[in-house]
Amino acid sequence: MNPVVVVTGASKGIGLAVTTILLKKFHANVVAISRSTTPQLLELKSDALLILECDVSKALTGALQHAANHYQGLDGLVLNAGTLDPLCRITDDTPLSSWKKHFDVNFFSLVTAVNAAIPSLRRSKTGGKVVFVSSGAAQKGIAGWGPYNAGKAAMNSLCRTLAEEEPGVVSVAVRPGMVDTNMQTTLRAVGAFSMTEASYELFVKAHAEGKLVKPEECGHVIAALALRAPKSFSGQFVSWDSAECAPFRKE
């Protein structure tokens, strides 16, 4: 049987690219989990694709259990679902409830997903893989990105801990770079209100000069790692364009 990989946040951007590559290049069975189903995701529909609509902050356990039962197991888990909202300063009037809602999506859903998937990943004949889609923000405190910075840093910590606790499963966090997705559109539209001028202009300039990463470029690395990430990567935070990821990039 072909390997089975779950992708959260699969309806657009990086998640859609990863789903497409897993299906078309690596011939994997894919469970696409997203809050809603887009026309682009529906275009990929086949016997190898199971689409599940799910709010990752509320119903993820059931979705993953259904996925594992449907395919009699799981081999990989790509944790890509996330939100940038709220863009805010630590000391502004953003209510703490907004920070908590952010963490429900960007961090606590990861814990839920791992708990639900790990029994199947332990039994994977190819060796279970968990790929956390992280960000350079995990290491750099970009002004105006308080919740996002903290959530991605917590993600990387979770990845390291999972690698220690589950040595039979490879867990790796990947920095996809500045990717041409809806997040970048949002940043250009409203980022100036909370970011520093220098940081905001960096993103605007990258878009204007055509330097944003294409989702299928970093997505190829993520898809490949979900199937064949080596033990040496476990617990690591790697950049999609690093030398160590060269074997997993699109040829």
Rank of each mutant, 00 (worst) to 15 (best):
T186G: 07
F237D: 09
L187M: 13
F203V: 14
S194F: 07
A198T: 14
D241I: 07
A243N: 09
Q184M: 10
T196I: 09
I222N: 02
A224Q: 08
K214N: 11
S242W: 04
C218K: 11
A208R: 14
C218P: 01
G191R: 10
L212Q: 13
S199A: 15
P247D: 14
M195G: 14
A208N: 12
K250C: 10
E209A: 11
V204P: 01
E244D: 15
A243L: 06
V190A: 08
A223H: 03
A246R: 07
F203T: 12
S199Y: 00
S199P: 02
V190M: 06
K250I: 10
P247W: 13
Y200T: 13
S234H: 03
A206T: 10
A192Q: 11
S239P: 00
K211F: 03
F233T: 02
K205C: 03
A224E: 08
H220P: 01
E244H: 01
P247H: 10
C245R: 00
F237K: 02
E201F: 03
L202S: 13
L212G: 11
A223V: 04
V221A: 12
H207K: 15
A198E: 12
P247C: 06
T196P: 06
F193S: 15
S242V: 11
S239K: 07
Y200C: 08
S194W: 02
S194C: 08
H207C: 07
R249V: 09
S234P: 02
F237E: 09
L187N: 11
T196Y: 00
L187W: 00
A206K: 12
K211M: 13
A189Q: 13
L227N: 07
E201A: 15
G235K: 01
K250E: 14
F237C: 08
M195P: 08
L202E: 04
V204K: 15
A226R: 04
A243T: 10
T185G: 14
T196L: 05
A229E: 03
V190W: 00
S234T: 12
W240C: 04
A206F: 00
T185F: 00
K214W: 00
F193Q: 14
S239G: 05
Y200F: 02
K211P: 03
F237P: 02
R228I: 00
F203N: 10
E197V: 15
A208M: 10
K211S: 14
Y200A: 07
V204N: 08
R249I: 11
M195T: 15
Y200M: 04
A226G: 08
P215Y: 02
S199M: 09
L202I: 06
E209N: 13
T196C: 07
V190R: 05
K205I: 02
V190P: 01
K205T: 14
L225W: 14
A246H: 05
L225E: 06
E197F: 01
A229V: 02
V238G: 02
P215I: 10
P230N: 06
Y200I: 09
V204S: 11
A229F: 03
Q184R: 10
T185H: 11
E201W: 01
C245L: 12
F233L: 07
A198P: 01
A226N: 07
F203D: 04
